[in-house]
Structure formats: structure tokens, C-alpha cells
Amino acid sequence: METPELIKDGKRLDGRALDGLRPIRIMAGVLKEAEGSAFVEWGGNKVICGIYGPRECIPKHDASPYKSLLKCRYTMSPFASLEEHGRSGPNRRSTEISKVIREAFDSVVMSGEFPKTQIDIYVDVLQAEGGTRIAAIAAAAVALANAGIPMKDMISGVAVGKIGGQLAVDLGKAEDNLGESDMPIAFTHRGKEIVFLQMDGKLTPEELSRNIDAAMEASDKVYALQAEALRKSYDSEGGQELEM
């Protein structure tokens, strides 16, 4: 297949600058029955997240008397995107993403306060356009805060990578599939610790550290939107209606 030109006159396929983010919209408290919830629209991605718990740990032999068990289930709707994600339910890809999201939050959630219980993070991707795991992390962080689950810090991330020989921030679907490298990464907001990092393709060590710096800057912008969403949920009436 012929690779299209990913960068033209310093601009990308959708007209963004190399360090530009797609438009992001975040809402907190969109589900009524969940303890906490969030909806994230990130470019063409639509992700909804619900938090349940702390609740009884099932199976019981998994329960720890010292801490709450964090569980995450990431799924992609059958209608989320074209190509290989044509069915719902657990598969190799969603199992992996569920695991890495859980591990990212394991490092900030203060699970010691709720022994013998579990906390469920459910993330459903309604529409996908590259970078869903990062959108899922952004949604889960807002939803956990909205649920009142104690956390040491908030988490925000962004996918960075290399397209058409240049480093770029927040890769879309075409850039992800056809570019040289894709590296989703997430930080804690205050401590700037890396809690999540994956990479496809190749980068030199120098490119990697430049990418991390760019990601740190971009994830601060994402955090600002997460914080705004949480603050907004306390505006006059509280709670937000989901509009799409």
C-alpha cells in the first residue's frame, strides 16, 4: 500500500501542528447508577467510563485483607471502528489494555483504605480513531475522582510518536497505522511520574527523551481539561447531561 504524505508544509493530515492536540471534551458524572463516571471525546474517540465500588470482592479467595483489588475492563464496541475490532468482548488487545490501565491506577489509588473489597473501572470505547487507551485513562482518572475513591494524584497522558520522519504529539488513526512509531504515555500530574508507557516502532534514545518532554507538556493540557470537567460538575446544579 502506498503511504500517504503524513506531513505537508509542517502541518498534519487534519491540519494540526506537530505539537497540537485534537479537540478534547471531558464531562464528569454522566452516569446515574455508577459511583463515579466520565465521558471523553478526544478527536474522533468517544469513551465512557463508570466506577463501581468499593464493593464485595468476587471471587472471594482473591480478596486481600490489606487492600482493595483494582479491576479494569476495557472494551471496544463492535461499532467503534472499522477493521479488526468488529466484535465486542474480551480479546487479546482489550485484555492487554485493561491490564495496563489497571497497573497505571494501581500506583495512585489508595487501596489500603478498603480491605477485602474490589473497585471496578469499566471503560467502553464507543467510537475509535487512534489513541483510545489514552482517552480511556483520561476518562478513568476523572471518573475515579468523581466516585470519591482516594487517590494520591491525578493521571493524564497523551500518545506521542514519529510520523514522516518527525516527532509529533497525539497521533490519530492514520498516523498511528502508517507512521514510524507510536508511544502512548501517562504521567501523574503533580509528581510527573511515568505510570504508563508503551511503544510501537522504533525511536532513538534521543528521540525518546524528546518525546517524553513533549508528552509531559501535552498531558498538562489534558489535565487542565480533566480538572475543568471535575470543577464544572460542581457548577450551580451539579451533574452533567450527556450530549453527543
Partner: peptide
């Protein structure tokens, strides 16, 4: 004087 504080602040 009041302000909203988020986890980690």
C-alpha cells in the same frame, strides 16, 4: 473565599 481542590493538589 472558597476553591475546589482535586486529588493530588
Amino acid at each position: 473565599m472558597e476553591r475546589i481542590v482535586l486529588p493530588g493538589d
